[in-house]
Amino acid sequence: MSKTMEPDLQSPLGGTQNEAAGQEWRHPSDNWLRGFILDNRAALGTLAVFIVMMAVFMIANPTVFTTWYLYSSVLTTLPVALFVVVPLVFVVTCGEIDLSFPATMGFASWVFALVVQAGYDPFLGIAAAIATGTLLGFLVGSLVVYGGLSSLIATLGMNFLLRGLIQIINEGKSTALTSLADSWAYKIFSSQLYGIPVQIFWAIAFVVLSALLYNRHRFGAQVRVVGDNPDSAQQMGIDVKRVRVKVFVFVGIGAAIAGTFSVMINFTWWPTAGDGYLLPVLASVFVGGTPTWGGIGTVVGGAIGAVTVSFIQTGVVAAGLSGFYVQFFNGLIIILSLLGHKWNQARYR
Protein backbone atom coordinates (compact mmCIF):
# COMPACT_ATOMS: atom_id res chain seq x y z
CA MET A 1 0.00 0.00 0.00
CA SER A 2 1.54 3.26 -1.10
CA LYS A 3 1.99 6.06 1.31
CA THR A 4 0.07 9.20 0.47
CA MET A 5 2.39 12.16 -0.01
CA GLU A 6 1.35 15.32 1.79
CA PRO A 7 1.28 18.21 -0.69
CA ASP A 8 3.45 21.25 -0.08
CA LEU A 9 1.52 24.28 1.12
CA GLN A 10 2.10 27.65 -0.48
CA SER A 11 4.12 29.95 1.73
CA PRO A 12 3.34 33.66 2.09
CA LEU A 13 6.59 34.47 0.23
CA GLY A 14 5.40 32.76 -2.93
CA GLY A 15 7.26 29.44 -2.51
CA THR A 16 6.27 26.29 -0.69
CA GLN A 17 6.55 25.82 3.05
CA ASN A 18 9.26 23.22 2.49
CA GLU A 19 11.28 25.71 0.39
CA ALA A 20 10.71 28.51 2.90
CA ALA A 21 11.93 26.28 5.71
CA GLY A 22 15.12 25.39 3.84
CA GLN A 23 16.17 28.73 2.36
CA GLU A 24 14.94 32.20 1.61
CA TRP A 25 13.00 32.42 -1.63
CA ARG A 26 14.57 34.50 -4.36
CA HIS A 27 13.10 35.95 -7.50
CA PRO A 28 14.49 34.34 -10.68
CA SER A 29 15.76 37.75 -11.84
CA ASP A 30 17.94 37.93 -8.71
CA ASN A 31 19.59 34.63 -9.60
CA TRP A 32 20.14 35.78 -13.18
CA LEU A 33 21.68 39.07 -12.03
CA ARG A 34 23.93 37.28 -9.55
CA GLY A 35 25.09 34.84 -12.23
CA PHE A 36 25.72 37.66 -14.71
CA ILE A 37 27.85 39.56 -12.19
CA LEU A 38 29.87 36.48 -11.25
CA ASP A 39 30.44 35.50 -14.88
CA ASN A 40 31.50 39.01 -15.90
CA ARG A 41 33.14 40.27 -12.73
CA ALA A 42 36.46 40.97 -14.49
CA ALA A 43 34.88 43.09 -17.23
CA LEU A 44 32.62 44.86 -14.72
CA GLY A 45 35.62 45.59 -12.51
CA THR A 46 37.44 47.16 -15.46
CA LEU A 47 34.33 49.18 -16.29
CA ALA A 48 34.22 50.46 -12.71
CA VAL A 49 37.86 51.59 -12.96
CA PHE A 50 37.07 53.39 -16.22
CA ILE A 51 34.03 55.16 -14.76
CA VAL A 52 35.98 56.33 -11.70
CA MET A 53 38.84 57.54 -13.89
CA MET A 54 36.52 59.48 -16.20
CA ALA A 55 34.73 60.99 -13.21
CA VAL A 56 38.06 62.30 -11.89
CA PHE A 57 38.94 63.76 -15.28
CA MET A 58 35.49 65.29 -15.59
CA ILE A 59 35.82 67.01 -12.23
CA ALA A 60 39.33 68.22 -13.09
CA ASN A 61 38.26 69.86 -16.37
CA PRO A 62 34.51 69.68 -17.10
CA THR A 63 34.77 72.07 -20.06
CA VAL A 64 37.01 69.78 -22.09
CA PHE A 65 35.30 66.54 -21.11
CA THR A 66 31.85 67.75 -22.12
CA THR A 67 32.90 68.49 -25.71
CA TRP A 68 32.46 65.91 -28.47
CA TYR A 69 35.78 66.75 -30.14
CA LEU A 70 37.78 65.00 -27.42
CA TYR A 71 35.77 61.80 -27.69
CA SER A 72 35.84 61.92 -31.50
CA SER A 73 39.64 62.09 -31.51
CA VAL A 74 39.88 59.07 -29.20
CA LEU A 75 37.35 57.07 -31.23
CA THR A 76 39.39 57.72 -34.37
CA THR A 77 42.47 55.85 -33.14
CA LEU A 78 40.91 53.47 -30.58
CA PRO A 79 39.86 50.86 -33.21
CA VAL A 80 43.52 50.29 -34.15
CA ALA A 81 44.22 49.12 -30.60
CA LEU A 82 41.01 47.07 -30.36
CA PHE A 83 41.89 45.00 -33.43
CA VAL A 84 45.04 43.82 -31.64
CA VAL A 85 43.87 43.68 -28.01
CA VAL A 86 41.07 41.21 -28.70
CA PRO A 87 43.23 38.51 -30.43
CA LEU A 88 45.85 38.91 -27.69
CA VAL A 89 43.21 37.88 -25.14
CA PHE A 90 43.04 34.53 -26.95
CA VAL A 91 46.84 34.19 -26.91
CA VAL A 92 47.20 35.02 -23.21
CA THR A 93 44.29 32.73 -22.32
CA CYS A 94 46.10 29.98 -24.20
CA GLY A 95 49.08 30.49 -21.89
CA GLU A 96 51.28 32.28 -24.45
CA ILE A 97 52.33 35.84 -25.28
CA ASP A 98 52.91 37.60 -28.60
CA LEU A 99 55.26 40.60 -28.78
CA SER A 100 55.63 40.52 -32.57
CA PHE A 101 52.31 42.22 -33.39
CA PRO A 102 53.78 45.77 -33.74
CA ALA A 103 56.10 44.62 -36.54
CA THR A 104 53.29 42.55 -38.07
CA MET A 105 51.18 45.72 -38.15
CA GLY A 106 54.00 47.55 -39.90
CA PHE A 107 54.77 44.76 -42.37
CA ALA A 108 51.14 44.05 -43.35
CA SER A 109 50.34 47.77 -43.70
CA TRP A 110 53.48 48.11 -45.85
CA VAL A 111 52.09 45.48 -48.22
CA PHE A 112 48.80 47.40 -48.28
CA ALA A 113 50.67 50.63 -49.10
CA LEU A 114 52.64 48.97 -51.90
CA VAL A 115 49.48 47.63 -53.55
CA VAL A 116 47.70 50.99 -53.37
CA GLN A 117 50.80 52.89 -54.53
CA ALA A 118 50.99 50.58 -57.55
CA GLY A 119 47.53 51.79 -58.59
CA TYR A 120 45.46 48.76 -57.60
CA ASP A 121 42.14 48.88 -55.78
CA PRO A 122 42.53 49.42 -51.99
CA PHE A 123 40.24 46.42 -51.39
CA LEU A 124 42.89 44.26 -53.03
CA GLY A 125 45.44 45.91 -50.75
CA ILE A 126 43.36 45.04 -47.70
CA ALA A 127 43.12 41.40 -48.82
CA ALA A 128 46.90 41.31 -49.41
CA ALA A 129 47.56 42.81 -45.96
CA ILE A 130 45.32 40.26 -44.22
CA ALA A 131 46.98 37.42 -46.15
CA THR A 132 50.38 38.77 -45.06
CA GLY A 133 49.26 38.99 -41.42
CA THR A 134 47.92 35.43 -41.58
CA LEU A 135 51.20 34.13 -43.00
CA LEU A 136 53.30 35.98 -40.41
CA GLY A 137 51.04 34.76 -37.60
CA PHE A 138 51.44 31.19 -38.81
CA LEU A 139 55.21 31.65 -39.01
CA VAL A 140 55.40 32.99 -35.45
CA GLY A 141 53.09 30.26 -34.16
CA SER A 142 55.13 27.56 -35.88
CA LEU A 143 58.35 28.85 -34.31
CA VAL A 144 56.76 28.66 -30.87
CA VAL A 145 54.78 25.43 -31.21
CA TYR A 146 56.80 23.28 -33.61
CA GLY A 147 60.17 24.93 -33.01
CA GLY A 148 59.79 24.56 -29.25
CA LEU A 149 60.82 28.17 -28.56
CA SER A 150 59.55 30.33 -25.72
CA SER A 151 56.76 32.55 -27.02
CA LEU A 152 58.26 35.52 -25.18
CA ILE A 153 61.68 35.19 -26.81
CA ALA A 154 60.49 34.00 -30.24
CA THR A 155 57.94 36.77 -30.73
CA LEU A 156 60.31 39.44 -29.41
CA GLY A 157 62.95 38.25 -31.87
CA MET A 158 60.45 38.27 -34.74
CA ASN A 159 59.44 41.81 -33.80
CA PHE A 160 63.03 43.03 -34.16
CA LEU A 161 63.65 40.94 -37.30
CA LEU A 162 60.59 42.17 -39.19
CA ARG A 163 61.08 45.78 -38.10
CA GLY A 164 64.72 45.67 -39.16
CA LEU A 165 63.75 44.23 -42.53
CA ILE A 166 61.25 47.04 -43.08
CA GLN A 167 63.83 49.68 -42.20
CA ILE A 168 66.55 48.15 -44.37
CA ILE A 169 64.40 47.96 -47.50
CA ASN A 170 62.72 51.36 -47.09
CA GLU A 171 65.70 53.19 -45.55
CA GLY A 172 63.36 54.92 -43.14
CA LYS A 173 61.24 56.52 -45.89
CA SER A 174 57.47 56.85 -45.60
CA THR A 175 54.84 56.37 -48.31
CA ALA A 176 52.10 58.94 -48.93
CA LEU A 177 48.76 57.55 -50.14
CA THR A 178 46.64 60.64 -50.85
CA SER A 179 44.57 58.72 -53.42
CA LEU A 180 42.92 56.80 -50.58
CA ALA A 181 40.67 59.77 -49.80
CA ASP A 182 38.68 59.22 -53.01
CA SER A 183 38.37 55.45 -52.73
CA TRP A 184 35.35 53.43 -51.66
CA ALA A 185 37.51 51.58 -49.17
CA TYR A 186 38.18 54.81 -47.28
CA LYS A 187 34.50 55.81 -47.34
CA ILE A 188 33.43 52.41 -46.01
CA PHE A 189 36.13 51.86 -43.42
CA SER A 190 37.53 55.23 -42.34
CA SER A 191 35.14 58.11 -43.01
CA GLN A 192 32.58 59.65 -40.64
CA LEU A 193 28.89 58.97 -40.11
CA TYR A 194 26.99 61.81 -38.42
CA GLY A 195 30.27 63.02 -36.94
CA ILE A 196 31.23 59.58 -35.59
CA PRO A 197 34.31 57.83 -37.01
CA VAL A 198 33.10 54.82 -39.01
CA GLN A 199 36.03 52.67 -37.92
CA ILE A 200 34.67 52.44 -34.38
CA PHE A 201 31.62 50.58 -35.69
CA TRP A 202 33.86 48.04 -37.43
CA ALA A 203 35.89 47.66 -34.25
CA ILE A 204 32.76 47.09 -32.16
CA ALA A 205 31.57 44.43 -34.63
CA PHE A 206 34.99 42.77 -34.38
CA VAL A 207 34.79 42.76 -30.57
CA VAL A 208 31.27 41.30 -30.58
CA LEU A 209 32.13 38.53 -33.04
CA SER A 210 35.32 37.73 -31.14
CA ALA A 211 33.42 37.60 -27.84
CA LEU A 212 30.96 35.12 -29.38
CA LEU A 213 33.90 33.11 -30.72
CA TYR A 214 35.52 33.10 -27.29
CA ASN A 215 32.42 32.35 -25.20
CA ARG A 216 30.06 30.44 -27.51
CA HIS A 217 32.21 28.65 -30.07
CA ARG A 218 34.16 25.41 -29.79
CA PHE A 219 37.40 27.22 -30.62
CA GLY A 220 37.06 29.52 -27.60
CA ALA A 221 36.39 26.55 -25.34
CA GLN A 222 39.45 24.77 -26.71
CA VAL A 223 41.62 27.85 -26.09
CA ARG A 224 40.52 27.99 -22.46
CA VAL A 225 41.07 24.27 -21.89
CA VAL A 226 44.51 24.34 -23.50
CA GLY A 227 45.51 27.35 -21.43
CA ASP A 228 44.26 25.75 -18.23
CA ASN A 229 45.79 22.29 -18.67
CA PRO A 230 47.37 21.24 -22.00
CA ASP A 231 47.77 17.62 -20.90
CA SER A 232 44.10 17.29 -20.03
CA ALA A 233 43.19 18.98 -23.32
CA GLN A 234 45.29 16.42 -25.20
CA GLN A 235 43.56 13.56 -23.41
CA MET A 236 40.19 15.07 -24.34
CA GLY A 237 41.11 14.77 -28.01
CA ILE A 238 41.99 18.43 -28.62
CA ASP A 239 44.85 19.09 -31.03
CA VAL A 240 46.79 21.34 -28.65
CA LYS A 241 49.46 22.35 -31.17
CA ARG A 242 46.90 23.36 -33.77
CA VAL A 243 44.97 25.47 -31.27
CA ARG A 244 48.15 27.24 -30.15
CA VAL A 245 49.11 28.02 -33.76
CA LYS A 246 45.61 29.31 -34.48
CA VAL A 247 45.74 31.93 -31.73
CA PHE A 248 48.98 33.34 -33.20
CA VAL A 249 47.37 33.39 -36.64
CA PHE A 250 44.44 35.31 -35.16
CA VAL A 251 46.86 37.91 -33.77
CA GLY A 252 48.45 38.21 -37.21
CA ILE A 253 45.06 38.84 -38.81
CA GLY A 254 44.11 41.41 -36.16
CA ALA A 255 47.46 43.18 -36.48
CA ALA A 256 47.08 43.35 -40.27
CA ILE A 257 43.62 44.91 -39.96
CA ALA A 258 44.92 47.36 -37.35
CA GLY A 259 47.84 48.38 -39.54
CA THR A 260 45.58 48.89 -42.56
CA PHE A 261 43.22 51.09 -40.56
CA SER A 262 46.11 53.17 -39.24
CA VAL A 263 47.26 53.85 -42.81
CA MET A 264 43.75 54.83 -43.93
CA ILE A 265 43.44 57.21 -40.97
CA ASN A 266 46.70 59.03 -41.75
CA PHE A 267 46.89 58.55 -45.56
CA THR A 268 50.53 57.71 -44.94
CA TRP A 269 52.50 54.57 -44.21
CA TRP A 270 55.45 54.95 -41.86
CA PRO A 271 58.27 52.40 -41.37
CA THR A 272 57.62 52.71 -37.62
CA ALA A 273 53.91 51.85 -37.98
CA GLY A 274 52.76 49.87 -34.95
CA ASP A 275 55.77 50.63 -32.76
CA GLY A 276 53.87 52.76 -30.27
CA TYR A 277 51.21 50.10 -29.58
CA LEU A 278 53.28 47.45 -27.80
CA LEU A 279 52.95 48.57 -24.18
CA PRO A 280 49.45 50.17 -24.40
CA VAL A 281 47.98 47.03 -26.01
CA LEU A 282 49.56 44.66 -23.49
CA ALA A 283 48.40 46.95 -20.67
CA SER A 284 44.86 46.88 -22.09
CA VAL A 285 44.77 43.07 -22.03
CA PHE A 286 45.84 42.85 -18.38
CA VAL A 287 43.85 45.87 -17.20
CA GLY A 288 40.83 44.24 -18.86
CA GLY A 289 41.06 41.27 -16.49
CA THR A 290 42.85 38.54 -18.44
CA PRO A 291 45.41 37.06 -16.02
CA THR A 292 48.87 35.94 -17.04
CA TRP A 293 48.54 32.29 -15.96
CA GLY A 294 46.16 31.24 -18.78
CA GLY A 295 42.90 29.33 -18.85
CA ILE A 296 40.61 32.31 -18.32
CA GLY A 297 40.14 35.70 -19.94
CA THR A 298 37.60 38.25 -21.09
CA VAL A 299 37.28 39.78 -24.55
CA VAL A 300 34.85 42.47 -23.41
CA GLY A 301 37.12 43.30 -20.48
CA GLY A 302 40.06 43.65 -22.86
CA ALA A 303 38.04 46.04 -25.02
CA ILE A 304 37.11 48.13 -21.97
CA GLY A 305 40.77 48.05 -20.93
CA ALA A 306 41.73 49.45 -24.35
CA VAL A 307 39.23 52.28 -23.90
CA THR A 308 40.63 52.99 -20.43
CA VAL A 309 44.24 53.10 -21.58
CA SER A 310 43.32 55.24 -24.61
CA PHE A 311 41.68 57.87 -22.40
CA ILE A 312 44.57 58.07 -19.91
CA GLN A 313 46.90 60.19 -22.05
CA THR A 314 44.10 62.36 -23.38
CA GLY A 315 42.59 62.77 -19.93
CA VAL A 316 45.84 63.65 -18.18
CA VAL A 317 46.69 66.38 -20.69
CA ALA A 318 43.11 67.68 -20.85
CA ALA A 319 42.97 67.84 -17.07
CA GLY A 320 45.75 70.42 -17.19
CA LEU A 321 48.61 68.18 -16.05
CA SER A 322 51.98 67.92 -17.75
CA GLY A 323 52.63 65.11 -20.20
CA PHE A 324 55.17 63.79 -17.70
CA TYR A 325 52.24 62.50 -15.62
CA VAL A 326 51.05 60.15 -18.36
CA GLN A 327 53.45 57.32 -17.54
CA PHE A 328 52.71 57.73 -13.83
CA PHE A 329 48.97 57.34 -14.35
CA ASN A 330 49.52 54.47 -16.79
CA GLY A 331 51.43 52.60 -14.11
CA LEU A 332 48.95 53.53 -11.38
CA ILE A 333 45.90 52.34 -13.33
CA ILE A 334 47.63 49.12 -14.39
CA ILE A 335 48.79 48.21 -10.87
CA LEU A 336 45.44 49.04 -9.23
CA SER A 337 43.53 47.10 -11.89
CA LEU A 338 45.75 44.04 -11.57
CA LEU A 339 45.44 44.07 -7.78
CA GLY A 340 41.67 44.35 -8.05
CA HIS A 341 41.43 41.54 -10.59
CA LYS A 342 43.72 39.31 -8.55
CA TRP A 343 41.50 39.66 -5.49
CA ASN A 344 38.36 39.30 -7.61
CA GLN A 345 39.37 36.01 -9.24
CA ALA A 346 37.65 32.92 -7.88
CA ARG A 347 40.96 31.00 -7.71
CA TYR A 348 42.55 33.69 -5.58
CA ARG A 349 39.61 33.85 -3.17
Rank of each mutant, 00 (worst) to 15 (best):
S2M: 14
L9M: 13
L13K: 05
T16L: 12
E19P: 01
A20V: 04
W25I: 09
H27P: 01
F36P: 01
I37K: 08
T46I: 06
A48K: 03
A48T: 02
M53I: 03
I59H: 10
I59V: 14
V64R: 13
T67C: 00
L70G: 06
Y71C: 03
T76V: 11
T77H: 08
T77W: 14
V80W: 13
A81K: 08
V85R: 07
V86Q: 03
P87R: 02
T93Y: 10
P102Y: 14
M105A: 11
W110F: 15
V116M: 08
D121T: 03
F123W: 14
G125W: 12
G125K: 03
L139Q: 06
L143A: 11
G147C: 13
G148W: 10
N159Q: 15
E171R: 15
G172V: 12
S179A: 12
S183G: 01
I200P: 02
F206Q: 03
S210W: 01
S210N: 06
F219Y: 07
N229T: 09
N229W: 09
P230L: 09
M236D: 02
R242S: 14
V243Q: 10
A255D: 10
G259R: 04
S262N: 14
M264E: 07
F267R: 10
G274M: 15
V285Y: 11
W293M: 10
G295I: 04
V309E: 04
G315H: 06
A318K: 13
A319G: 15
L321H: 09
Y325R: 07
L332T: 02
I334N: 04
H341Y: 08
H341E: 04
R349Y: 09
